[in-house]
Simulated scan of single mutants.
Amino acid sequence: MGARPRRRRTRALACARRLLASARHTTLPIAVVAARCGFTSPSHFTRRFRGAYATTLSEWRRLARNRETIEEVPDRILGAPPVRW
């Protein structure tokens, strides 16, 4: 896989991570988050997110609701296996 698709996916996942953690978007449906960030399928988005960040979407939102900063979250999942596309 080339660098451009990988970069696009990385940006899409970062977009989703920000939306899911945003206090303004806590009730935004997963399908809407996926679409806004460029994913055509919510299930594909869910699998990619879990593979990239080693956490579920609901866990990510829970962490954000508990006021943990986004910068702290990756430190908690550093033991995750490397992302493979």
Rank of each mutant, 00 (worst) to 15 (best):
V32P: 00
R47C: 02
L19H: 05
F49R: 03
L20D: 01
L78A: 14
A64Q: 06
T69F: 03
R76D: 08
Y53D: 11
P74E: 09
S41R: 11
R7S: 13
A31H: 06
L13D: 06
F49W: 05
R17D: 09
Y53S: 10
E68P: 00
A31I: 11
R17F: 07
E59V: 11
I77T: 15
R24Y: 15
T46L: 01
S41Y: 03
P74H: 12
L63D: 00
P5G: 10
W85L: 13
F39Q: 03
A16N: 04
V73G: 00
Y53W: 12
A12V: 02
V32H: 08
S22F: 00
A14H: 12
V73H: 05
G2V: 02
G51F: 00
R50I: 12
V83I: 08
T55A: 09
R4A: 13
R48I: 03
S41P: 01
R61I: 01
D75I: 06
R18G: 06
Y53K: 07
G51C: 06
T56H: 02
A21M: 07
A16F: 06
A12E: 11
R11A: 14
R6N: 06
E59S: 11
R36N: 13
L19Q: 10
R4W: 04
R62N: 10
P82N: 08
S22L: 04
G2Q: 11
R6Q: 14
R36W: 09
N66A: 14
R4V: 14
C15Y: 02
D75R: 15
T27K: 13
R7V: 07
L19E: 14
R84T: 10
R50E: 10
P5E: 08
C37S: 09
T55F: 01
A80W: 02
R24V: 09
A54M: 04
A52D: 01
R67C: 08
R7F: 03
I70G: 08
A35C: 09
V83A: 09
T56K: 05
E71Y: 10
G51Y: 00
R50G: 01
T10S: 13
I30K: 09
D75Y: 14
A3M: 10
I77M: 11
M1S: 11
L28N: 02
R50V: 14
A34S: 13
R11L: 12
R76Q: 13
A21V: 00
F39A: 05
P81Y: 01
R65Q: 12
M1Q: 03
L28Y: 02
G79A: 15
P81R: 14
R24Q: 15
R65P: 00
R76T: 06
P81A: 15
N66L: 13
A54S: 15
G51N: 11
I30R: 10
T69H: 08
E68W: 14
G79W: 12
H25C: 14
S43M: 06
M1P: 04
R48K: 14
A52G: 00
E71I: 13
T56W: 04
W85Y: 15
S22T: 07
A3I: 12
F49S: 06
S58Y: 02
T10C: 03
T10H: 11
R62D: 11
A64N: 06
L20A: 12
R61Y: 03
R6D: 07
G38T: 04
R6V: 15
F39R: 04
V33P: 02
N66I: 00
A3K: 14
R17H: 06
F49I: 11
C15P: 02
